[in-house]
Write a protein that binds this DNA or RNA. Structure first.
Lengths: 304, 304
DNA sequence: GAACAATGTTTTATAATATGAAACAATTTT
DNA sequence: AAAATTGTTTCATATTATAAAACATTGTTC
């Protein structure tokens, strides 16, 4: 059996950023390990604990030790250990054989596959997105609303050397960027209203719209035009064009977008081609989703 | 509030395929709803129940009702209901507002993003895979070993009309197909031995290798050649070329593969170009992983 | 239109299980 | 050589998960 220990270099890379509050879980009493007391009122049941542990794995720290994770979440090492072993048994986390530390398990590759099959728009839109990628040579991505955020659920990256990256799972608030604004503009008026009431517009870049009235005006324009554009509202140097996929009931299912580096976005001819092609693809896709709903009751399109 | 009911058409689409065993969970006694008694010996704790519920959502049935899922898993509707509500609160499942039924939540898009960041090979290989996609115009995919299966963790689909599809999350046993055989051939000899001892070779297509000795011989050839090929071993009509990415310690990190429709795979000139390009890319990628391991201690490559 | 049957959901007494402190074994650091 | 840190296991106890029944709502049947 291998060692449960990690070396000095690895340990140095860990900056917990945890303020000492209560001494806990060390065998000696010379205050070195601390944990943060749970602050949100509700006590977690065991399933919630397991889910919180899963959600602790993030891009900036994808690997955790047991005690370290206990310190972060406020659960005892014994509890963290037991839950992680259960999660490991089902593939939700994996354990490094050498360091004995944990990372997310490979099950999420499979679950993504299932998830995409339960979102009909993903299947329907993909072939059209490929057409769009072919005719514009830019990064094409598909977005949906998730709570108060945009989330990218499909992405075809441009083959060019200078290209925009838009990985699956990337998120942004609904007020910044063409895709976000497009999703918001074509939501129900109830949703827009409650969104604008609750949200505060933080500037993510110098070009983010921060004036609520300017945003409201822009949303109306987007709805009139049938598409949204942006330049550097969410990512500096990144331009975008986005248009909605609408089903037969007039409900927005998602937005297909192009992410274009500023240098090419500023070429008017290229921008016009991109816009024209995007609108053509989105209209075809909307027609597919419209037809499908009446023709096939189980939610999948009948391919002709 | 919307209705907890689903319509006739939707209900007709459900074929539970459950054999009656014990009558349960219906308010009248006219035996219509049944459930399967848990058969595997170990009793589940609540977290295991939650994970089993998550894993019940599959491609062939991505949407479930509470009682239906209770019948499938052997848990009472009250339990299923409570767990699903917890999972919903954290985004692990989502509930359709109209039908009140459940599907997987959008959290998995984000978790995939995190997972890919904890597998350095994914980041390193992607740009090289794009080069390969450009020079061969075929579908390129990246695979790793997960338990006793191959799993696809990155995929760049060909732009051609006739192309092979290989979605992220798709799996196959380690004895069928070029990618699988390549992963197996370059595993440790201990792993190969125990794998060959435990597994039975089922024919997935007429071309699947079912003779253990033939497989063993093929694995040795693959290790000698440095690459694997296959035609229709896992999917009829699908050819493939696969080669391993190896780090500085000689450990295999994954396999980069081309999936090629049979009609193009049979063209010798094209096949040779594909093979040559694959080997070139894989070698560059292995060099990257080798350099990275000694240069950067935190597991990410230093980009030049 | 009336009776019936199916659905998601809530309640509640009870049985089952999750919990944290302490100890353990292995290893690195001092 | 001693101290400190790690993942892991044990165990009495207190918390929590459980299933049956009931509820509210809607689809189906005759």
């Amino acid at each position: 059996m291998s060692s449960p220990f990690i070396n000095k270099v690895q340990r140095r890379n860990k900056n917990l950023d945890i303020k000492p509050r209560f001494l806990a879980w060390t065998n000696n009493n010379k205050n070195k390990v601390f944990y943060i007391m749970k602050q949100n009122g509700r006590k977690s049941n065991s399933i919630e604990k397991a889910l919180k542990l899963i959600l602790s794995f993030q891009t900036h720290q994808p690997v955790w030790g047991v005690r370290e994770l206990g310190a972060k979440t406020g659960f005892s090492p014994a509890t963290v250990q037991r839950i992680l072993q259960t999660l490991k048994r089902y593939g939700f986390v994996a354990q490094d054989m050498d360091t004995r530390q944990y990372r997310l398990g490979n099950i999420y590759f499979s679950l993504l596959h299932v998830l995409q099959s339960s979102l009909p728009i993903s299947r329907t839109a993909l072939p059209f997105m490929k057409q769009l990628a072919g005719s514009t040579a830019e990064t094409v991505h598909l977005n949906i609303v998730d709570g108060t955020e945009r989330i990218c659920i499909e992405s075809i990256e441009s083959m060019q050397t200078l290209k925009a990256s838009m990985p699956i799972g990337s998120r942004s608030p609904l007020y910044a960027g063409a895709s976000s604004k497009c999703l918001l503009a074509f939501s129900t008026s109830d949703f827009i209203e409650s969104y604008l009431d609750t949200i505060t517009l933080k500037a993510l870049t110098p070009h983010t719209i921060t004036d609520p009235q300017a945003l409201e005006l822009e949303l109306k324009e987007i709805k009139t035009n049938g598409y949204a554009t942006s330049l550097g509202e969410h990512n500096p140097g990144l331009g975008a064009i986005s248009a909605p996929v609408i089903n037969h009931e007039g409900i927005q299912l998602g937005a297909i977008s192009l992410a274009i580096p500023e240098i090419r976005y500023r070429e008017q001819a290229h921008r016009e081609v991109c816009l024209k092609e995007t609108l053509r693809i989105v209209n075809t896709c909307s027609e597919m989703m419209g037809r499908q709903a009446s023709a096939s009751p189980n939610g999948y399109p009948e391919v002709i």
